[in-house]
């Protein structure tokens, strides 16, 4: 039985801001299903008394000195944008008036 259907993949794609339809959708859904079937093998591992590891180093609350340091200039940052009107980055209209 399939773990994921094309409908679920389409929904997940929207969450990830990807547009998927047609053959691309069915092909990706089939590949994701195969991978997720493979991943199911982890269910057989007993992890009842196991803590999760998100990070391997014993580092917690790494703080730096509270001192200002130079950062990138506004010009340098705005210059990277695909559309800009310095000192602003341009995006499509988001508010209807």
């Amino acid at each position: 039985m399939a773990v994921v259907t094309p409908e679920v993949v389409k929904q997940v794609a929207m969450l990830a801001r990807l547009r998927l339809e047609g053959k691309a959708l069915t092909q990706l859904a089939a590949q994701l299903d195969e991978i997720l079937q493979y991943v199911q093998q982890l269910q057989a591992v007993d992890t009842q008394r196991v803590e999760p590891t998100s990070h391997v180093l014993p580092l917690t609350n790494v703080l730096r000195k509270d001192e200002p340091t130079p950062s990138l200039s506004q010009d340098a940052v705005v210059a990277l944008a695909p559309a800009a009107q310095p000192p602003f980055v341009k995006v499509p209209k988001v508010i209807e008036v």
């Binding site: 994921v4 679920v8 993949v9 997940v12 794609a13 969450l15 990830a16 990807l18 998927l20 990706l28 590949q31 994701l32 991978i35 997720l36 991943v39 982890l42 269910q43 591992v45 992890t47 196991v50 803590e51 999760p52 590891t53 998100s54």
Partner: peptide, 29 residues
Amino acid sequence: KRRILLGTYVLSHGYYDAYYLKGMKVRTL
């Protein structure tokens, strides 16, 4: 695209425990 979709799926509501949390526990082992 495949990896973004897979990652979004395993982190999404309802699947997090079965995939991501499980993965982090097996990582401990």
